[in-house]
Amino acid sequence: MSSAHVAAHAVHDPNTGTTGLDNRKMGMWAFLGSECMFFGTLIGTYLSYKGKSISGPTPHEILNIPLTSVSAFVLLMSSLLMVLALAAVQRNDMTWGKIWLFLTALLGAGFVGFQIYEFTHFVHLGLTLQTNLFGTTFFVLTGFHGAHVTGGVIWLLSLWVLALRGKLGPQDSLKVEICGLYWHFVDIVWIAIFTLVYLIP
């Protein structure tokens, strides 16, 4: 009897399993665990090559900490907006839900814009992928982070478009929450990269 009850329950709530967590959310956590190793390996490579370049430019000659602090602030603020977006969707306030989703994506795009400016500026200063170990490791590490942010922006804009079409509501808040998990993760990775690459001399 109890099994029949549980089976009937499972039909009503298809994605909630043994642990009471949603499958999709747990899958996202597993993915983020894997991403930790991905960025851990990239950061480890950067650190093991730190100071090993046999020619310039070196990091302290070229990194613009004030400028990147602004872009880091922009990215961290987008995390705040992400929280507001999720809260708005959860309470069925789709007007603000749309606004916050769009602004989160906008700040993310702003961060990517800063990065594009930074990369072109560095290339003009003579630092490219092929210049030295610093250029190689710096561009690949921050570039892969930027690619993750870009992916997040596309994801956020997709949710925003769904919301504009009226296809996103409180019953879909889990999709916003999962996107938020990814978005916060990408932010946290930037805190690690910003500290290790820019702030520590």
């Binding site: 894997s34 991403e35 190793m37 390996t41 992928l129 092929q130 170990l133 190689t136 690949v140």
Partner: peptide
């Protein structure tokens, strides 16, 4: 799988960048 494959993914990405884009890893 989830914790070990990222290491070879990165190793292969770095090799790919070396081969296609002339990086110095």
């Amino acid at each position: 799988v989830v914790l070990a494959f990222p290491a070879i993914t990165v190793a292969l990405i770095l090799l790919m960048f070396d081969r296609f884009f002339g990086t110095l890893f």
